[in-house]
C-alpha cells in the first residue's frame, strides 16, 4: 500500500469541547498558522462531523480527512489562504 499520510504540523486537543468551541479553537489556530500548514484536530463532540466540513467550505480551507475513531473524531485541515 502506498497511501500518502499527511503529517500534521500541529495537533489540536479539542476533546470535551462543545459547539462552538471546537470550530473557534480550530479557526484561531488556523489563523496563526502559515499558508499550507496542516492541522490535526481531535474532538469528542459528534457535531464536528458536520461542522468541520461546513467550516472548511465557508472559510475556504481544505478538509483533508475526517473520521471517527471510537469515541473520538480525528480530522486534518490544510490552510489554503
Amino acid at each position: 500500500m502506498s497511501t500518502t499520510i499527511t503529517k500534521p504540523d500541529q495537533v489540536l486537543d479539542l476533546k470535551g469541547l462543545l459547539c462552538p468551541m471546537p470550530i473557534v479553537r480550530l479557526s484561531i489556530a488556523v489563523k496563526k498558522a502559515g499558508v499550507g500548514a496542516v492541522l490535526e484536530g481531535i474532538a469528542t463532540d459528534p457535531g464536528v462531523m458536520a461542522d468541520v466540513p461546513a467550516w472548511a467550505r465557508q472559510s475556504g480551507n481544505e478538509l483533508v480527512s475526517i473520521k471517527q475513531q471510537g469515541k473520538e473524531y480525528h480530522f486534518l485541515v490544510k490552510k489554503t489562504k
Partner: peptide, 12 residues
C-alpha cells in the same frame, strides 16, 4: 454569541 463566534471563526 454562539452564532457570532461561529461566523467569525468561519471567516465572516
Amino acid at each position: 454569541f454562539i452564532i457570532a463566534t461561529g461566523a467569525a471563526a468561519s471567516g465572516m
